[in-house]
Amino acid sequence: MVREGFQIEVETIDAQVGEMATLARGMLRDGLQSLLDLDREAANVVVSRADELAQLDEDIETNVLSLLALQAPVAGDLRRMGAALKLITYLNRIGRYGYDIARMTQGWTEGLDHVARPVYLKEMASKVEAMLDLVLAAFRDHAAPDASPLVELEDDVDALRYSVWRECLTYMAQDTRHIEPSAHYMMVARYLERCGDNVCKMAEKLHYVATGERLLLP
């Protein structure tokens, strides 16, 4: 006997988590791009998606709690639903960092240009997106994410954050007009580094879903 109704509800929640992941990933990518291009129109679009992100977060939580209350899932189903509640928290944070970066673009002083091309930020974002893709593929495949590439990418992101920090210190020391944009870059680097951390926490949860073993990434 297969619990068809239950299975449909689980698949619906899986699809919603996937949708939220796509949205959060897009908000982070587009938020950063709006800053790199100093494109207020693009930033407005990212900011406008915040409500959708919050709504998905609430809808998924409601659906998971309802499923826990009414269907009492156990074993792999229980682990997946428990993980869903955690994943949406991490995804919400990632999307919100994209929103915060877009807000930075919106508030960027008129006429102020970039100090230099913030290539490290772009590189950091690419690595965070690669990490997210690894984890989301594992989520889709009901598999444990491969820890090694994740940890390597996470180390790269951490190292790049310090590169941004050192570079910005140099800019700020050179010219006080560089302080405002440099402060923004340092903040964005911090956001991206935290996004990497959130993706690693997602990987730990998905490892538990797939194997029943607790994983703690270094």
Binding site: A159, D197, K201, R214, L215, P218
Partner: peptide, 28 residues
């Protein structure tokens, strides 16, 4: 990586790469 999602700074100092190993807490 930070092991918490709080505000702690989880970044590693440059040059101090960690080995890509992970600890598995057995539930056996």
């Amino acid at each position: 990586m930070s092991t918490t999602t709080g505000s702690s700074d989880g970044a590693t100092a440059p040059g101090a790469r960690r080995p890509p190993t992970a600890a598995i807490h057995s539930t056996e």
